[in-house]
C-alpha cells in the first residue's frame, strides 16, 4: 500500500533520514522503534507530507504522495504525541470540524459518526466538554476519534503515549488495540515495547537515520541481528 524508496531528509546540514526503503502492506501494523534522534518521527511525518522537500520517493497505491494533494490527507490520519486538539472547540467540534470542512459531510451525519466514534473510545459523556477539562489519556482518545472521523485508510501514530501519565497509557493502548482488530493499517512510532510485541506484524528498528532491522516482533525481540538493536533492547527491556 505504501512504498518508500531511498527516502532521505535533511534539516539544514543535518541529515536525519539516510535512505529508507520499505513497504507497508494493507492491514499491516508496523511498530517503528529506536533511540531518540534516530529519525522515527521524521520518517512518520514524511509519510503524510508534514515534512516536505525529501529525496527519494513515497508512493501510496502507486501514486507519488506529492501528486495526491488533498487525497493524501484523506487517506492518512495522524495522531500526535501532544494530542494537538483544538482547545477552543468542544470534543464534538474537534471531531466534526474536518469532516465538515474537508469532506463536506452533512452536519447530522458527521454528528452521528462523532457520537459513534466517541462511544468506541469510551468518551460518550465528554462530547460537550472542552479539551482543557480532559485528562491526557482522554485527550489522546479524542484525538484518535478525530483522526478516524476522516475515515482514513492508514493511521500514523507519533509516540501516542509518550506524553501521558503512566496510568493513562493503558486506556490509549486499548483503543489502539481495538483499531488493530478492525484491520486498520497502522504505523506506530512507540517506546512501548510490550505493546509493539503484542500487536505489531513487523518491527522497524531505526538508528541514526537508517532502517537497521525489519523483522517480525518474535524474531526481533528474541533474536535481534545487529549489535545496535541488541544494545538498545538490553537498555529498554
Amino acid at each position: 500500500m505504501i512504498t518508500v524508496k531511498g527516502l532521505r531528509k535533511s534539516f539544514g546540514r543535518n541529515e536525519v533520514l539516510k535512505g529508507i526503503t520499505t513497504t507497508i502492506n494493507k492491514g499491516e501494523v508496523i511498530a517503528v522503534i529506536g533511540p531518540s534522534g534516530s529519525g522515527k518521527s521524521t520518517f512518520l511525518r514524511c509519510l503524510n507530507r508534514l515534512e516536505t522537500r525529501i529525496e527519494g520517493s513515497i508512493m501510496i497505491e502507486g501514486t507519488g504522495i506529492e501528486q495526491m494533494e488533498g487525497q493524501l490527507r484523506k487517506k492518512v490520519g495522524m495522531v500526535f504525541q501532544h494530542f494537538n486538539l483544538f482547545p477552543h472547540f468542544t470534543v464534538l467540534e474537534n471531531i466534526t470540524f474536518a469532516p465538515g470542512q474537508v469532506l463536506k459531510t452533512e452536519k447530522t451525519e458527521s454528528l452521528n459518526d462523532a457520537f459513534e466514534l466517541l462511544k468506541s473510545v469510551g468518551l460518550s459523556d465528554k462530547a460537550n466538554d472542552y479539551p482543557a477539562k480532559l485528562s491526557g489519556g482522554q485527550k489522546q482518545r479524542v484525538a484518535i476519534a478525530r483522526a478516524l472521523a476522516m475515515k482514513p485508510e492508514v493511521m500514523l501514530f507519533d509516540e501516542p503515549t509518550s506524553a501521558l501519565d503512566p496510568e493513562m497509557v493503558k486506556e490509549v493502548l486499548q483503543v489502539m488495540k481495538n483499531l488493530v482488530k478492525s484491520g486498520m493499517t497502522m504505523v506506530i512510532v512507540t517506546h512501548e515495547m510490550a505493546f509493539a510485541k503484542e500487536v505489531a506484524d513487523r518491527v522497524l528498528f531505526m538508528d541514526d537515520g537508517k532502517l537497521v532491522e525489519d523483522e517480525t516482533p518474535d524474531v526481533f525481540f528474541k533474536d535481534p541481528k545487529t549489535e545496535r538493536a541488541q544494545a538498545f533492547l538490553e537498555k529498554v527491556i
Binding site: G70, R73, G77, N84, F86, A98, Q101, V102, A143, R146
Partner: peptide, 24 residues
C-alpha cells in the same frame, strides 16, 4: 502542533487560519 493537526486532517490553509489559528 495546531497547524500540523489541521494539515494532517486535510483542512485548507484558509479554514485553518480563520477557524483554528486566528481565534487562538
Amino acid at each position: 502542533g495546531q497547524k500540523e493537526a489541521a494539515m494532517a486532517l486535510g483542512v485548507s490553509y484558509q479554514s485553518m487560519m480563520l477557524k483554528i489559528i486566528l481565534p487562538q
